[in-house]
Design a binder for these strands. Structure first.
Lengths: 212, 212
DNA sequence: GCTTGAAATGAACGTGTGTTCATATAGCGT
DNA sequence: ACGCTATATGAACACACGTTCATTTCAAGC
């Protein structure tokens, strides 16, 4: 038997990637065998090599594809407004987008060490681009007096860690709706970096006195 | 050859665990072979089975030992004081303790899925105990009006995620000292949950009016 | 309807895996 | 001084891995 009805490259290819993504996320790249992936797709192991040169490249392609989607998704957001609004846009986007792609996110933070140095560098670059988007919001907010942040780089990483944590426990049918989770996280992120009112007044006051 | 000078169970046993911990953290449980561990210890693979019944148990023992140390360490901290102070104690302890044991922490959050259900349940229980310690601080702070938290459970997880993030980037010889990192994270955690001054005043005001 | 080639098979490959075990030896208790 | 046993060896086991490839089969183009 070969070439079953309705099974073309266009159909099997995505199926392979989907199965690999699911299995890598559940059991870890190293623990998943090509035969497992093939079985999930409904095909023999050999056939996978029509769609990927090897296992490592399969992982890399999944991760690169994911990071590209993240970057594209971020670029599609509306980042007008002041830093406070932009931070909310970012955090809400991050939560929403990452919850929709939990498997890919999980792998992205877990399996980087299973990549060759070359492939790792590519993804590292993309991740840095994403982080820089957040850091620039923090920097702007620091300059405008909206935020009170000691170290923008560290804060960026801390915020992203916090936001990523959501993927480890969120269940779509759980106690909290997506909207509510978005709101709570966004609120926490905002409070963690925002300048306190009294402190801002104090600064403005000092500036006023200096002028006078 | 066997029984080399100075190589007893008391020496080789810890060496095995140390090597396994290091390698699991670097390359992932599934990717590390018993022969690699043995080689690191300076012993043949077969000898490892004098110290562990199998590879899975070796991982489990490492993780259980780690979690026990975390719980013991937490219990040794001084948690007197108001919720704000207790939260700072907790965050500083967490950062410090986890940075000293980065390998174990990494594995704890990465390799849980490589455990049997039974072993997983044991660790899950210990982790929950740890999380509960933080949540009870948040609850107390909520009750006392120190904190402004929508959902203590979610906030607990968000804070721990944020704090754990430090292990992924911190380098002991890096730009920031441990003390400074502790301070920044502790500060961010505090701000993320603390009740704003104006809001507290407003509440007190409302309470005063209600009384009057 | 026949030809053609893309899509899939399934067996085979070499290698490496976790684990076992008969065997050897070094150091402690006596 | 010597035997006993804890500690280690190293070869072997059965199995599973990623990957290759000659072969087969089916859908589409003419």
């Amino acid at each position: 038997m070969a070439r079953k009805i309705g099974s073309h490259s266009d159909i099997t290819g995505p199926k392979v990637r989907a199965a690999a993504l699911r299995l890598f996320a559940r059991h870890g790249f190293a623990s998943v065998t090509m035969r497992q992936i093939a079985s999930e797709v409904g095909v023999q192991a050999g056939a996978l090599y029509l769609y990927t040169p090897d296992k490592q490249t399969l992982l890399f392609d999944l991760l690169r594809e994911h990071m590209q989607e993240v970057l594209d998704g971020l670029a599609a957001e509306d980042f007008s407004g002041n830093p406070v609004e932009r931070l909310e846009t970012f955090t809400r986007f991050h939560i929403r987008f990452h919850l929709e792609r939990r498997d890919a996110v999980f792998i992205s933070y877990m399996e980087l060490r299973n990549l060759t140095d070359e492939n790792f560098a590519v993804l590292e670059d993309m991740r840095r681009t994403y982080e820089d988007a957040l850091e620039s919001i923090l920097k702007d907010g620091q300059a405008s007096g909206h935020f009170d942040v000691e170290d923008t780089k560290l804060t960026t990483l801390a915020l992203i860690s916090m936001l990523n944590g959501v993927t480890t426990w969120y269940k779509p049918d759980g106690r909290l709706s997506l909207e509510r989770v978005e709101a709570i996280y966004s609120d926490m992120a905002g409070k963690a970096v925002r300048m306190a009112r009294w402190k801002r007044k104090q600064m403005l006051g000092a500036a006023g006195q200096a002028k006078a």
